[in-house]
Design a protein around this nucleic acid. Structure first.
Lengths: 141, 141
DNA sequence: ATGCCGGTTGGACCATGGTCCAGGGTCAAG
DNA sequence: CTTGACCCTGGACCATGGTCCAACCGGCAT
């Protein structure tokens, strides 16, 4: 009972058919049962898996990490610490990227604030900055 | 005076030779003069261009945007407003991404704080969250 | 003249996460 | 019986910013 064909699974999960086949190739979904004609047959646990993967992606996990999380979930010996470790690494990673990106934003904002707009490009402080910067370089932004 | 071969330009700019040729193919660098043997010959303005591109990249501009900035810099009719517009768009873009990423970090942090570690994965709140989440979905994270 | 470094080309390949296509088979409705 | 919607496969293709490769040529030192 409750068997879907690929299109139905895809629609239920809000992804494309090709995405389902891609996940299968990537080892995120099991090889499904088939009808006599070769059609893939899925059930509710497959839908749940696809939903899990999508949720993980929304939290910034890669497909590879989603696969690790699925493997941990399926294990009966693993402890939650393993999941926590992955999560903590992801948090650190997010913080590094937040720092880099906010530094960039701050620098752009400084430059934008200095730029009067109504001058020829030759007087644009943004271009001047990009042009001059390397004379004293090799520090990170 | 001051002509470099590609390897010298690459070393001076701190990039690979292939990167120089790649920039040429992408239209970021002019087609350089050649020696009789077909070797590319560069000068200080080419080095300065590569440095400009690298600086732009460090500020989060794509190569495509770097090309636009170079075109503006070379124009004698453009005004600084055009550069400012690109920069402001980049700032907005950075802010959107900062918001998304910090929302993700916050959610991960909440989940990590709830996770005791020393329990079987079946009791891991992170996995539970990923498993359950889609029952009430379709809002952005 | 021999070795070696560095130059040339076109094209393949990397990661990431898919998307699309051709050329065929299947299935239910009209 | 035909039409249309769906499914199958293998492989190409997308963006991004390069990197690496083979197979060849140039130029300098020993």
């Amino acid at each position: 009972m409750g068997n879907f064909k690929i299109g139905e699974l895809a629609a239920a999960a809000g992804v494309g058919r090709d995405t389902i086949r891609y996940y299968e190739r990537m080892g995120l979904l099991r090889e499904p049962a088939r009808t006599a004609a070769g059609y893939r047959l899925y059930d509710a646990t497959d839908l749940e898996r696809v939903n899990f993967i999508r949720s993980a992606q929304e939290l910034g996990f890669t497909l590879d990490q989603a696969r690790q999380l699925l493997a941990l979930r399926a294990s009966d010996t693993a402890h939650a610490q393993a999941v926590l470790d992955i999560t903590l690494a992801k948090i650190t990673d997010a913080e590094v990227r937040l720092k880099r990106l906010s530094d960039i934003r701050d620098m752009l904002r400084l430059l934008a604030d200095e730029c009067p707009g109504e001058v020829p490009v030759s007087d644009c402080p943004i271009l001047t900055f990009l042009t001059e910067r390397r004379r004293s370089d090799h520090r990170k932004i």
